[in-house]
């Protein structure tokens, strides 16, 4: 055993001693799996059209990415993190505490969350209120009194007589997914705010409001179908009675198989999300460690590639992948801040 431990120790030691001296010549990117498909397109183009190495991109999820990003400075920490939500105050503080003081925030566009069913079935036309009634664990009593009861609706026609006489069956992402967070915040909270007495709760009892609005039912009507959006699309194809919740880019790529439902009068499409008419859409960001510019080669050039009109513009290649661009003014504003490497001062 002594021999082994000496051997093992020497291997580790030699590897460990030689490591810190190493510099990194490729950009390291972590973060949201929603932004991942857009980031890899930019990274690939950047690698092909310049002499820099292609950046390495890990899909760790928004929260996981932020944690790695804020863990400190140096070649062993990522240079950029993607996020499908804005940085939180707590994350911003932890970044500062670890010496990551100059963070550039880049808002790149929007992503919609689609509620879709098979093209063989009839298209749904509902409000976020209906969606809340269909999917929440507790809903307002159907008799009209201002009390909450365990969700009694089993069929769509129970909620609204115009809806089909079919069992409620909705497949969506699990709680670990950013898509689920966004769906709960935008669609469910939007839906429950349509009831005045629940909305009043937001002021009186914020925790209760969150619990009521954010808890999905667990009696089989809402099915957690895993992180893989492709799987949900396949299941919708096989089962025309079911609805599915997934990212807009998957809707676009499978437009011959699934159709978006109309939510509050708008279908999830390019224009309705860009105009802000479609209720369930979220902003996409990435954050750059300005202190690494100059240490790791190519960061500025990568930013330039991302914020080029032919990338994030109206007709850019990112829109072909399903990202919804910012409007012209906002794009100019963000583009300027990026070009000047202007760090984020505070979250206001």
């Amino acid at each position: 055993m002594k021999k082994i431990s000496i051997l093992m120790g020497s291997v580790l030691l030699s590897a460990g001693l030689s490591a810190p001296a190493m510099a990194r010549d490729n950009i390291s990117i972590v973060g949201s799996s929603t932004v991942y498909p857009f980031a890899i397109v930019v990274a690939e183009r950047f690698g092909k059209s310049t002499d820099f190495k292609t950046p390495k991109i890990e899909a760790t999820g928004s929260g996981g990415g932020m944690k790695l990003f804020c863990s400190g400075l140096g070649v062993n920490t990522p240079d950029i993190t993607n996020s499908s939500r804005r940085i939180k105050q707590s994350e911003f503080d932890s970044c500062r505490a670890n010496g990551v003081t100059d963070v550039i925030e880049v808002l790149i566009g929007y992503d919609g969350i689609a509620i879709a069913n098979s093209v063989d079935a009839e298209q749904f036309d509902m409000s976020t209120k209906d969606l809340f009634n269909a999917l929440a664990a507790e809903v307002p009593n159907p008799d009209g009194s201002e009390t909450l009861v365990a969700n009694p609706y089993q069929k769509w026609s129970d909620i609204n007589p115009d809806f089909p006489d079919k069992r409620i069956e909705v497949m969506g992402p699990p709680p670990t997914s950013g898509t689920r967070d966004a769906f709960v915040e935008l669609a469910m909270e939007g839906g429950c705010s349509a009831f005045d007495f629940i909305k009043a709760m937001e002021k009186s009892d914020k925790n209760k409001f969150k619990t009521v609005c954010h808890t999905m039912r667990e009696d089989g009507a809402f099915i957690e179908a895993g992180e893989n959006d492709n799987l949900i699309v396949q299941k919708l194809e096989a089962n025309p009675d079911a609805l599915g919740i997934f990212g807009f880019s998957f809707l676009e790529q499978n437009s011959d198989k699934v159709q978006s439902s109309i939510i509050d009068g708008f279908e999830a499409d390019f224009d309705s999300i860009a105009d802000g008419d479609y209720a369930i859409s979220r902003p996409l960001y990435f954050y750059v460690k300005a202190q690494h510019v100059g240490t790791v080669p190519g960061i500025e050039e990568y930013l330039a590639e991302f914020t080029r009109e032919s990338a994030w513009g109206e007709d850019g290649y990112l829109t072909e992948k399903g990202m919804i661009p910012l409007d012209d003014d906002l794009r100019d504003e963000v583009g300027d801040a990026v070009a000047n490497l202007k760090p984020l001062e505070s979250l206001d």
């Binding site: 590897a15 460990g16 490591a19 390495k56």
Partner: peptide, 10 residues
């Protein structure tokens, strides 16, 4: 290996 010995990620 990564946090203590500072070997590169990935």
């Amino acid at each position: 290996f990564i946090n203590y010995f500072q070997l590169p990620r990935s």
